[in-house]
Amino acid sequence: MSIIVYIEHIEGAIKKTSLEAASYASALAEQQGVDAKGVVLGTVSEDQLASVGTAGLSTVYHVNDDQLNAGVIQAHAEAVAQAFEKAGADTLILAKSSLGDAVAARLAVKLDAGYISNVVALPSTSGTYTVKRSIYTGKAFAESEITKTNKILGVKKNAVPLKTDGAPASVEALEVNLSEGAFAAKITSIDKANDEIPLPEADIVVSGGRGMKGPENWNLIEDLAKALGAATGCSKPVSDSGWRPHHEHVGQTGVKVAPTLYVAVGISGAIQHLAGVNASKYIVVINKDPEAPFFKAADYGIVGDAFEVLPKLTEAIKAVK
């Protein structure tokens, strides 16, 4: 038996969260004394493919089919199922993501597997096979048992340490047979801001709320983000008012982030927003209202006017970078 990792990439660059999933898989493989392989779909360079070896994978199956560059859910599920069989695997590991969720759910049925998502630790395999996962949007954990032979584990962002000292992986081309129905959902166009750090992948996030008073003041958020090398986010009222696009909305019904550092500026900290950020390692809150509930969830806080604090903070960070 072996373990296989479904590895996602963004236009040929392997995603950090997928490397986390690969690191998880390699630790699991070591625990069980088996081998961990990966599968990558679409156009990716040999160097990028081999680089997943640093996270501990021995082999990478590469399905070099440019129809798979976009996240065609059914086609990805079919391709990964074939890689799973080729590897003789009984466990599929993937990073929790919108595409990963959609693909893994189909795979759970295809492979007759027990699927647990938002996994935060290695399974305990003495006796029953149980895994710890995050539930209630980060407000609690559950220990869940998988009762099937085949298993799928969706690893939560930033929950496992990244392994970086593995040897380059050997790359094997894999041919797959995709059904006609695999492309039933036809992608007609993609609309994407390419110059930004994608929010769900970012290690640092700077978010602004209504306290920023209007979209014309977002340069202050962007300047700080740039100085920190961060992605930018916003609260729900901000995206609802159209100040910022929806894909920047962080919260219960928006993007859930898990960066090392989350900086919230002019956001009061409604529970719906906190639900999207509570997996962050460190939280900085800047708000002029000392009673803002966000301070209770923060590690560091500054009570002050964002329009005064942000420029000073941006300069101070530039000075040390």
């Binding site: 599920a77 969720d101 959609a102 893994a104 759970a108 699927y115």
Partner: peptide, 20 residues
């Protein structure tokens, strides 16, 4: 439970496309 998996499973069980 934040699984985000029921729609994909239903689609696969019914042999339909799924989007999410």
């Amino acid at each position: 439970f934040n699984g985000g998996m029921v729609h994909g499973m239903v689609a696969e069980l019914l042999g339909m496309p799924s989007v999410s």
